[in-house]
Design a protein around this nucleic acid. Structure first.
Lengths: 155, 155
DNA sequence: TATTGTTATACTCTATAACTATA
DNA sequence: TATAGTTATAGAGTATAACAATA
């Protein structure tokens, strides 16, 4: 019945996403990071450290998996684990100076890398597209919270 | 310089896609498939069989990895490998009747699952958003072909 | 020589469940 | 009892390089 109404949007969303990921993923790998590691670095770079629970939720990584990802990033000297002052069960993860430096470098390189592509878009398009994406995300996010398929957190 | 111009779009694009993936990925897992397996099933369902090279390119999976993914799908009885009539090095992969049935079931369920979310969008929004995504994808795709980071195919 | 797909290798991600130490 | 993070386990994806069969 109402299927057909948004099927093209869904298909295009997935297709566009896939292309973006191809482009973006190539660059991430060339920097020596996995997508998950990149997600963690980005999450930490945009905030000023967070505990594992919040970090996992933000980067879409379950807690068991996150431990391994953090181990590897710590081994590379990019992140650091510190005791939380309030709760002795909790741990605060934050970027080391090297991690922060990589984050800023990544951001700038990532933008530069995509620059030539996005150059072709005019301001009006960019503005309207951004607004629409934000609206769409809001709806998706609301839906994600309201109707999970199962109780456990999974991608 | 021109960084700031499209930074919000980039951020929103990544954020929106991440949310979409969370929602979509949950459903895929609940069907007993991995994301890669889902990509393969989808690619095969939308066409009528293809060789490994094209399939890998479409699903963003390198050839070495694809062999393993196909093995598992074949083991589940969802896909089948057949000799290519023209080129004896090549192989045609296609869905089995069970695979095809799963594909149609998935498509319909996937749409039904996302229905409540997309219900809230009006026709004008859907149309404009679809057009913009297609335009953006075209640009990204062109960029992906023109300026790869390295020669090897990677996500 | 080049291409198609497989094999081999080593690493990372993944979910899940059991575990510890705190609360 | 509940929560935060780790550990253990088994499976899947990942890139890469070497390989066999065919072109």
């Amino acid at each position: 019945m109402s299927k057909q109404r948004f099927t093209p949007l869904l298909r295009e969303l997935a297709h566009c996403f896939q292309t973006f990921e191809l482009l973006s993923g190539r660059h991430i790998r060339s920097l020596g990071l996995t997508p998950s590691q990149f997600d963690v670095i980005t999450a930490l770079g945009e905030t000023n450290g967070m505990n594992c629970g919040d970090l996992g939720e933000r980067a879409l990584i379950t807690k068991g998996t996150l431990t391994g990802v953090l181990d590897r990033l710590e081994q590379k000297g990019l992140v650091q684990r510190e005791e939380s002052p309030g709760d002795r069960r909790s741990i605060i993860v934050h970027l080391t100076p090297e991690g922060l430096s990589l984050f800023t470098q990544i951001s700038s390189q990532h933008l530069k890398y995509l620059n030539t592509a996005f150059n072709k878009l005019d301001d009006e398009f960019i503005g309207s597209m951004t607004t629409q994406l934000a609206l769409l995300r809001g709806i998706l996010q609301q839906h994600a919270e309201i109707s999970p398929v199962n109780t456990t957190f999974s991608r």
